[in-house]
């Protein structure tokens, strides 16, 4: 696919302008992390910090449990993402490639729960989790996030675009359904798995309300929860919060840079009908 030169330059200019606009809040976060608390919110805005306070970046490691929070967040995000990919893609295969009675109704129930705001069933769910003695353990968040309907829905839609003929051919060759899932569907759905992984990872990484309700012991806190502990009843350590937020974004950015290379045209359909 060749693009002539002029549109390409226009595209670059557009991207650059959009890029600046998109990165502005991040820039502000970085600047704020170099200020003292009472200088963060001012009229007019100080876009450039003349007298940067670098020690916020040292203080956050020594004065708070950032290391613990980071460890918990990494562990949770990795486990939840893994389970969500596994159970989601597995269930999606059942929903999209096997026909059985009641399937569509069940699927609608899945989507239906997405349409209910969490605040409205948060307390009953919390009571249930308490009965299972999961509250105030890291497993509560795993249980809460790993079986979400989102992954099932997303993988199902992706599988729909993989032609049934391919599966029928494999079935005639005597491959079991599980074999088809593992040997054909999984390798073909790498881009979808990659985007589901990125989305689940970011959602778990940045989740605040779930950990707020379920993780009470300070040694279980995630980054988002820990950063909020810089806000007490009347005051907030805004500069430290921004420092922590900047630090917490960096790993996600690295993972994203790494993960986005799976979005390469044609991966999914290599060897399919041409």
């Amino acid at each position: 696919m060749s693009i002539r030169r002029v549109p390409r330059i226009v595209a670059y200019v557009c991207l650059a302008v959009a890029g600046v606009l998109v990165l502005l809040p991040f820039y502000w976060m970085v600047m704020s992390s170099l200020k003292t608390n009472n200088d963060v919110f001012t009229i007019p805005v100080q876009w450039i910090t003349t007298d940067p306070v670098w020690n916020n970046y040292a203080d956050i490691w020594t004065e708070s449990d950032m290391t613990t929070w980071l460890g918990n967040t990494v562990f949770l995000s990795a486990l939840v993402t893994f389970l969500q990919l596994l159970t989601g893609s597995f269930a999606a295969y059942g929903f999209s490639k096997i026909t059985f009675p009641g399937r569509d109704v069940l699927f609608l129930a899945y989507i239906g729960t997405l349409a209910v705001p969490w605040a409205s069933y948060m307390v009953p769910q919390f009571v249930l989790m308490t009965k299972f003695e999961l509250t105030d353990t890291i497993w509560s968040i795993v249980a809460l996030q790993a079986f979400g309907a989102l992954g099932v829905f997303m993988m199902k839609q992706f599988y729909e675009s993989i032609p049934d003929e391919l599966l029928d051919a494999a079935r005639i060759d005597g491959m079991s359904e599980f074999g088809i899932y593992r040997r054909i569907m999984l390798p073909l759905s790498v881009p979808a798995l990659a985007s589901l992984a990125l989305i689940t990872l970011v959602n778990t990484w940045n989740d605040y309300l779930g950990p707020l309700l379920y993780l009470r012991s300070p040694d279980l806190w995630t980054i988002q929860l820990g950063l909020k502990s810089f806000i007490d009843q009347y005051n907030a350590e805004y500069a430290l919060i921004m420092t922590g937020s900047v630090l917490s974004i960096l790993p996600v950015v690295v993972i994203f840079l790494f993960g986005q290379r799976y979005f390469v045209e044609g991966v999914a359909t290599t060897g399919l009908k041409g």
């Binding site: 608390n37 009472n38 200088d39 919110f41 001012t42 009229i43 805005v45 907030a236 805004y238």
Partner: peptide, 12 residues
């Protein structure tokens, strides 16, 4: 719109 804090308004 500027998320002013009262601590900064009086303290600064």
């Amino acid at each position: 719109t500027n998320s002013l804090t009262y601590q900064a308004q009086f303290g600064k």
